[in-house]
């Protein structure tokens, strides 16, 4: 009477089966696999299926791109890096210029004696609110960036 395969033996067989078809089996493990196949002939079917599947994938390969792709590969990356640095510089410059322009506009507005006081107050309040909004959004983004374990995942 044949023995019944235990779940532990099945798990072991699966591991050995993968290692066998991927050619990563040691001599000792190979003997262990043969022993399992002899003891449980029903495993032969599973072995044959995965072996055939592996034979097919062995004859497939990802297509090589045209040679020019490799020739231009690094230069494309270099250009992207260079452009990203350029964008950072443009952004910093723009922030400095916008801040300075706003400051000068505010300064001349406050010095303008013809402008009624409540308009000046309105502009100052709107500006203060805008600054608080920007600081709040930036702080939130920075905190999320520091603590979010899924920051690399695009939402």
């Amino acid at each position: 009477m044949s023995r019944k395969l235990t779940s532990r033996e099945r798990e072991r067989f699966r591991i050995l089966l993968m290692a066998k078809i991927d050619d990563e089996l040691t001599t000792q493990e190979s003997g262990e696999l043969q022993q399992l196949l002899r003891t449980y002939p029903e495993l032969e079917k599973e072995w044959n299926t995965y072996h055939k599947l592996k034979e097919v994938t062995n004859t497939m390969a990802l297509k090589s791109p045209p040679k020019e792709v490799w020739d231009k590969y690094w230069i494309n990356i270099y250009n992207r890096i260079e452009r990203s640095i350029a964008w950072i510089l443009v952004s910093i410059g723009a922030i400095i210029l916008i801040t300075w322009s706003l400051f000068r506009a505010l300064e001349s507005m406050l010095a303008d004696t013809q402008l009624v006081p409540f308009v000046k107050i309105g502009i100052l309040l709107a500006l203060a609110g805008f600054v608080i909004l920007i600081v709040s959004v930036l702080r939130e983004k920075l905190i999320i960036r520091k603590t979010d374990p899924y920051k690399e995942i695009q939402r």
């Binding site: 004859t59 497939m60 390969a61 990802l62 297509k63 090589s64």
Partner: peptide, 9 residues
């Protein structure tokens, strides 16, 4: 499927 080439036997 074009991205996979078949090694011809």
């Amino acid at each position: 499927v074009e991205e996979v080439q078949q090694i011809v036997d």
